[in-house]
């Protein structure tokens, strides 16, 4: 998967999270029912939460260390050879 696809996936997962944890969806699961010995809403919220974490971890692991920045790539083109990146920590 290339970096811009991962970026899109991250956006989608974020919106998925908002959708999962906002009222209309929560009300769907806010019922007098239980699953695995726990109220349905509790299983839903914690389960959805864990799934969201898993997806994010999966996407984060797909980004390799030397992935080019989608924006940075453009920036590099704009740079002349005379411009050097300063060190964040002097000498460090």
């Amino acid at each position: 998967m290339n970096i811009s696809k991962i970026r899109d996936a991250i956006l989608i997962v974020t919106f998925l999270g908002v959708w999962l944890f906002m009222p209309p969806m929560l009300d769907v699961f806010n019922q007098r029912a239980s699953l695995l010995g726990m109220p349905l809403i509790v299983v839903y919220v914690f389960g959805g939460w864990l799934a969201l974490i898993g997806l994010t971890a999966l996407l984060a692991s797909r980004i390799s260390d030397d992935s080019p920045e989608p924006g940075g790539r453009d920036g590099d083109l704009a740079l002349g050879p005379d411009i050097k990146l300063p060190d964040r920590t002097p000498g460090g």
Partner: peptide
């Protein structure tokens, strides 16, 4: 959690 899930942005 949502802010960190959307960390890229």
């Amino acid at each position: 959690t949502l802010v960190f899930v959307g960390w890229w942005f």
